[in-house]
Amino acid sequence: MNRNKDLKNYKHDLNYLNHSSSGRLRSNTGYVFTYIILIIQSLVIIYPIFLTITTSLKTNRQIFKNPFGMPTDFNLGNYIKLFEKANYVKYFLNSLIVSVSAILIILIVSSLASYALSKYKFFGNKFLSLYFLAGLMIPIRLGTINIMQIFQTMHLYNNLLSLIIIYSAMGIPAGILIFSGFMKEIPDELNDSGRVDGCSEFGIFRKIIVPLLGPAIVVVAVYNLIPIWNDFWFPMVLINNENLMTVPLATAKLFGQYETDYGIIFALLTSAAVPPMVLFITLSKYFVKGLTAGAVKG
């Protein structure tokens, strides 16, 4: 074994030496070239965000006079104005209530369904799996008209519950995809041992399966969090009460309201952008796993 590994390393080194001067990536010029491109792209990505944050710390006069310059002093005036004029904390809480509730529902219902789909053989299993997966390809907003009609009859217009329900429906396909992929890896022997102990089927799910789902739960939650938190379409269509606005809807509304005051606008955009960004940087690993779950299956 060891020798094999050594051989491989040796080959690798040889390979490295062989091609070190041939203009391939492992050569110095290749390295430099790769880094230059990656750094340029990084700047392209970072600069607009950086600009938004720094501009939010400037006064209106500075913004128009010297758009490139760094803020001369750390000026939080725009944020103070923004938080005085708009109930930003409220919007944030609304977004939080909606996202957390929807994600909890997604976690519960899609883990239950995935268990049935991945652990039992029954008539229609294959069809149901496809039926759920089809949801990944269908933009739910195409049903907006009927969704509005449904919530109108349910008297859930202007109610965060409507958003929670819609986002739950939206997240179920991805939840099922990720959970079933994960559950298929769990050996059936575990379930059988539960049966031998006299547990009910739900008992097996709860006592044996759920404790193993930890990583999958994080992946499903994080993967759904970003689209739910950032959604603008459904709040726009279903919410018009100022007290119930979510962050993206409030951003659009306040953008219209303070359009002439760039300082406030940039403070607003920064406030909307930074929390998901920080969250994402911390949890990016799980998001990427969720995103590629589909790719692995093809």
């Binding site: 509730s101 909890l104 519960i108 102990d197 009910s200 739900f202 008992g203 709860r206 006592k207």
Partner: peptide, 24 residues
């Protein structure tokens, strides 16, 4: 209510369900 074997400890999912209903 049907969850678990008879001696199931306070279930995590039940807890989350409670917080969820209060949120709603």
């Amino acid at each position: 209510s049907m969850l678990g074997c008879q001696s199931a400890p306070v279930s995590e999912t039940a807890e989350t369900a409670v917080s969820e209903t209060t949120a709603e």
